[in-house]
Write a protein that binds this DNA or RNA. Structure first.
Lengths: 133, 133
DNA sequence: ATAGAGCTTCCCGTCACTGGAAGGTCAAGG
DNA sequence: CCTTGACCTTCCAGTGACGGGAAGCTCTAT
C-alpha cells in the first residue's frame, strides 16, 4: 500500500504520516523503488494515532500508548494513569480559559462599542483600573 | 532606564522585551553605548502588552490594540469588535476542550485500572468501539 | 587593574506539523 | 518509444511566542 492509499485509509495527511516516520512513531517497509509500503497493521496503527491525537494526547503520550497497546501484558492501570494525567491537563486548561472568558466578557459588556473614543477595555489594559482596585 | 530595570518595572522578561522590539511592537531609544533606553511611556506600553497577552490576545491583536490605544480618535466599537472576536475564539476553544474532557473522562471511568491487561481506553483508540457503534 | 554584573547580537530549540522545490517512478495513451 | 501527469522521494523553511546559551562589549565597585 502506497502512502497515498494509507492517507485515504487512515485519514491522516501523507505529510503527517511521513513526519511520524521521521520521529520514529511508525516506520513502514520499503519497496525496491524506495516507496513506503504500508500493511494492514500499519493502517490500524495510523488510525490509532489519529484517534489519540484527536483526543489531545501529545506525540510522546501517543508513543507511550502505542507501546502499551503492543504490550500484551501491560497493566490497564498504566494506560489509565496516562489518560488521567492528560484529563487533568485539559481540565486545568479549561479553567484557565474560563477565567479569561469571564474577564473578557466583563470588559466587552462594559464597553458601549459606539463611535466615541472612551473605552473600558483599553482602560483596563492600560492599567487604569488596576490603580482603582 | 536599562532593559533590566524595564524588566522589573513591567514584569516582562528581558528576552520578551527584546523580542517585542524585533517584531516592531515597541522600539526603544538607544544610548551612545548601544544600550536600550526605556522611558516612562515605554514601561506603560510594556505593561499594557503584558496585560493584553495575559488575556490571551495574540501578538497581532496586541499590535492592533496598541495602535487603537494611541489613536485618540478611535471608536470604542473597533476595540470592542477585536475583543469580541477573541472572546468567541476562547469560547470555541473551551467547547472543544469540554468535548475532549467528556470523552476522556468516560474512558477513564470505564477503565478499571488494575494489573489486568484489558483496557477500554486502548480498545477505543484501536477502533474496537467504532465498529461496535 | 580586575572582577562580576549587565548589556549586546546571533543562532538553535520548542510542538506538531504544513508548504513548497527539485527530482525519481509509474501507468496510460498516442 | 515517448510523453504526460499523477504519485512518490528527500530536504529546507516557516508557523507562535518566546527561552537557552554562546561570544563578546560596557559599566560599576573595589
Amino acid at each position: 500500500m502506497n502512502i497515498g492509499a494509507a492517507e485515504q485509509a487512515s485519514g491522516l495527511p501523507a505529510k503527517t504520516i511521513r513526519y511520524y516516520e521521521d520521529i520514529g512513531l511508525l516506520i513502514p517497509a520499503r519497496r525496491d523503488n524506495g516507496y513506503r509500503d504500508y500493511g494492514r497493521t500499519d493502517i490500524h496503527k495510523l488510525a490509532f494515532l489519529k484517534r489519540a491525537r484527536g483526543l489531545g494526547f501529545s506525540i510522546e503520550d501517543c508513543r507511550a500508548l502505542m507501546s502499551l497497546y503492543e504490550d500484551r501484558n501491560r497493566a490497564s492501570a498504566d494506560v489509565r494513569t496516562l489518560a488521567h494525567t492528560h484529563l487533568h491537563r485539559i481540565e486545568d486548561k479549561i479553567s484557565e480559559l474560563q477565567g479569561l472568558r469571564d474577564a473578557l466578557s466583563t470588559l466587552v459588556e462594559a464597553c458601549h462599542g459606539d463611535a466615541r473614543p472612551d473605552c473600558p477595555i483599553l482602560d483596563d489594559l492600560s492599567g487604569a483600573l488596576a490603580e482603582h482596585a
